[in-house]
Computed example of a mutant assay.
Amino acid sequence: MTTASLRAWRFVHTWTSLICTLFMLLLCLTGLPLIFHHEIDEWLGAQAEPAAIQAGQAPLPLARIADAALAQHPGKVMQYVGFDQHEPRAVFAILNASAGAHPNDSVTKVYDSHTAAPLGPPMSGFMMVMLRLHVDLYAGLPGKLFLGLMGTLLVAAIVSGVVLYAPFTRRLAFGTIRTGRAPRTIWLDLHNLLGIVTVAWLTVVGATGVINTLSEPMINHWKATELADMVASQGQGQGQQQPRAPASLLPVDRAVEQARAAAPGMTVSFVAYPGTAFSTSRHYGVFLRGDTPLTARLLQPVLIDAETGAVGATRHLPWYLTALLVSQPLHFGDYGGLPLRIIWALLDLVSIVVLGSGLYLWLARRGRTAPAALTLRPAPTA
Rank of each mutant, 00 (worst) to 15 (best):
A117K: 07
A382V: 10
W201A: 06
I343R: 00
P88Y: 08
K76H: 13
W201R: 03
A116Y: 03
L330R: 04
E226W: 15
L70N: 04
G175T: 03
T2R: 14
Y111P: 10
L141I: 12
R366L: 15
T276L: 02
V353D: 02
G175H: 03
A63F: 08
T314V: 06
R297M: 11
M130D: 06
A4H: 14
A66Q: 06
L347W: 00
A55F: 13
L194W: 00
V256Q: 12
T3R: 15
P339Q: 01
V311L: 07
G82A: 04
A370W: 13
T381V: 12
R178M: 08
L376R: 02
M130V: 07
A296L: 05
L317C: 06
L288G: 02
G151W: 01
Q236K: 14
C20E: 04
A116Q: 00
A156F: 14
R170P: 14
Q85T: 15
G151L: 07
V81C: 04
L299T: 07
W43V: 12
L317E: 03
K109C: 15
W9E: 06
A373R: 09
L27M: 10
S98F: 10
T2G: 15
M218Y: 13
L359R: 00
W362R: 00
A245M: 11
V271E: 02
T179K: 14
Q242V: 13
A90W: 15
L324G: 02
N96A: 13
P103Q: 02
E49I: 14
A306R: 01
